[in-house]
């Protein structure tokens, strides 16, 4: 496919999987808001408001992660139940174009969540040039690694039912156990070490650092960026070499 053809394919996938479903089911627009808003609610109540900024930065990251969860179940459903992946494989559309198009379409559903949290982010006084730049960069990386991971998993799962089992496990591993919603020093020592394996730990530290919730030295921030980029790259490599575009 030439560049222009790829753009058409991307556009078609975004409309197909992102915009058109809303016509028949408007609730798609708000479902991704549910979890991050309930976390924010719990955290605000339990900390008497003290941890609201953590709930906001965590909510932004979780909203992006949820785009990956949505991608994983959509792709599994399309592959297994509709044979849509087979249709796409036997066409000029290459795997990276398909995944990118589908991942972009999931962003449509993240937009309301990102919007709501962005407003709270500004209202609670967390926004400045630096924190916005860090936030945008971090969220793009979270979207990228979550999508690569989702694609790889979706090509292995045998049934959509399996996504119901995997998605909560992945959310647990990526958003609840790692310090996305609280400062890392709240965790016992062993858990801090374990958290280093999760890319969301670095994502959260960078965002928390940029809004002053966490004191982050320049060197530490560089390390965090390096780790986040390295894990994203590793998940891209896994997707490129291990995802089953063609079935074995």
């Amino acid at each position: 496919m030439s560049g222009r053809h790829r753009l058409r394919a991307l556009g078609a996938l975004v409309v197909l999987n992102g915009l058109i479903p809303i016509r028949t089911q408007p609730f798609y627009v708000v479902y991704l808001l549910a979890s991050p808003l309930s976390f924010l609610f719990f955290i605000s109540v339990l900390s008497s408001g003290a941890f609201v900024p953590f709930g906001v930065t965590g909510g932004l990251i979780l909203t992006m992660l949820s785009a990956g969860t949505g991608l994983q179940s959509d792709m599994t459903h399309y592959r297994q139940d509709l044979k849509f992946q087979d249709i796409v494989v036997a066409s000029p559309v290459e795997a990276p174009t398909y995944v990118t198009g589908m991942a972009l379409s999931e962003l449509v559903y993240s937009t309301p969540g990102l919007g709501v949290f962005a407003v709270i982010f500004v209202v609670t006084g967390l926004a400045n040039l630096q924190s916005i730049a860090v936030l945008v960069g971090v969220l793009l990386l979270v979207w990228a690694f979550a999508s690569a991971l989702a694609f790889t998993l979706a090509t292995y799962l045998r049934d959509v039912r399996e996504t119901f089992m995997f998605s909560p496990l992945i959310s647990l591993g990526l958003s609840v156990l790692p310090p996305v919603y609280y400062p890392i020093d709240r965790l016992p020592h062993w858990a801090q070490t374990a958290a280093l394996f999760s890319p969301t730990t670095y994502a959260a530290q960078l965002v928390q650092g940029s809004v002053g919730l966490y004191s982050l030295s320049f060197g530490h921030a560089l390390l965090d960026w390096g780790a986040l980029i390295a894990i994203t790259a590793a998940l891209f490599l896994v997707a490129a070499f291990k995802a089953r575009w063609k079935e074995p």
Partner: peptide
């Protein structure tokens, strides 16, 4: 090959919301 082929797999179905 993929540039030049198209396929209707057995048991494939169109996306229901289109």
């Amino acid at each position: 090959i993929r540039e030049r082929i198209a396929c209707v797999p057995q048991e494939s179905r169109p996306l229901y919301f289109l």
